[in-house]
Design a protein around this nucleic acid. Structure first.
Ligand SMILES: [Zn+2]
Ligand SMILES: [Zn+2]
Ligand SMILES: [Zn+2]
Ligand SMILES: [Zn+2]
Lengths: 121, 121
DNA sequence: TCACAAATGAAAATGATTTTCATTTCCATA
DNA sequence: TATGGAAATGAAAATCATTTTCATTTGTGA
């Protein structure tokens, strides 16, 4: 296993929220950083192993990474215009933990998203 | 949009639990059915559109499909072995509705999934 | 300086999924 | 029954994220 290239972590921080390996790579290129795609993948994997970043999957299957420390939140998305509101998890956080615990699961995570039509649509 | 080939649904039933498109295809081949991989993919997509099957992602990103009861529910999935527990929404249903209403949204829906490591993993 | 391990990245390989497109199957209507 | 167009089919090619290979570079301690 190789160690993570610090510039990858720094770029993921700067990206804010979730970013895929490809996006991190493109972002670094755009900023003139010289790095190989392979190193981006290896670094992100390493950061996941070290539990410094979280990894999820987009609907299309692409892996997306995010700093674990980032404030956890969810989204309320308008199906019409795409407007998005960041919302606190609130009740759902406890619900997810309780359900998981009831079934003997550990290292628990969750995803949740609300969608509908906003007042303008 | 094409309609689902009924043999695909029948095979997915027989598979029990989750199966990927590739697995459904291999299973049909092994049973001597003549079908193209493309048709398997198209049929599964169509079944998802019609909400007859659920689709999730394995940790490696491969899409897996499964027959889904009509009742609205959520899933608790083991990241290790893929075991899945169907769970009632409970608290999350109200949470989603309330959050949406607070922001003036209507025609509200939501997605939620819990994942972790089961007691056997 | 030397030797050796770790890091790097270009290019090829992998593997799931999608797209293309020519062919076949259905089906309604004349 | 014949026929024309729509829908379904599937083989092959294309796509695209991710992994693997492997030769080269870099870092580090003796
Ligand atoms: Zn809107
Ligand atoms: Zn949450
Ligand atoms: Zn498990
Ligand atoms: Zn629900």
């Amino acid at each position: 296993m190789s160690r993570s290239n610090p510039r990858v972590l720094s770029t993921l921080e700067r990206a804010g929220g979730f970013a895929s390996a490809q996006e991190v790579y493109r972002l670094m290129q755009r900023e003139g950083e010289s790095i190989g795609l392979t190193t981006v993948y290896r670094s992100l994997q390493s950061l996941v192993n070290d539990k410094i970043v979280d990894v999820l999957r987009r609907d299309d299957g692409e892996a997306i990474y995010r700093l674990c420390g980032d404030a956890h939140h969810h989204h309320l998305v308008c199906k019409g215009c795409g407007d998005t509101v960041e919302i606190e998890g609130g009740a759902i956080e406890k619900w997810a933990l309780n359900v998981a615990k009831d079934h003997g699961f550990r290292e628990v995570g969750h995803t949740a998203e609300i969608f509908g039509l906003c007042s303008k649509c």
